[in-house]
């Protein structure tokens, strides 16, 4: 088991991102200030539905994409 202060290294939207071990994807979204926003999350190239974010633990090395809608043609 991870100790509470241990951190894991993620890749978040292409950039390195350190996070406390033992947390979930929902915790990450909250930490980013994106809770309740219209976003979509992919971890290691798999979609994580909104309903599953809180049940998805994060692990070191996870590649995470958080996307939203922007103007485009």
């Amino acid at each position: 088991m991870s100790t509470p202060n241990e951190s894991i290294q993620l890749t978040l939207n292409g950039e390195p991102y350190a996070m406390t071990a033992g947390l979930t994807a929902a915790d990450l979204i909250e930490q980013l200030g994106l809770g309740g926003r219209r976003i979509a999350v992919e971890i290691n190239e798999q979609i994580v539905p909104k309903s599953q974010l809180a049940a998805t633990p994060l692990a070191s090395g996870d590649q995470i994409e958080v996307v939203h809608a922007i103007g485009g043609g």
Binding site: G14, L32, R37, I39, V66, V67, A69, I70, G72
Partner: peptide, 20 residues
């Protein structure tokens, strides 16, 4: 109406307007 999907700009103001 068509739109694009892009990485969320992390660290942005959480109250910033959204296209949707």
């Amino acid at each position: 109406v068509t739109f694009a999907v892009r990485r969320t700009n992390l660290g942005q103001d959480a109250d910033a307007p959204n296209l949707l």
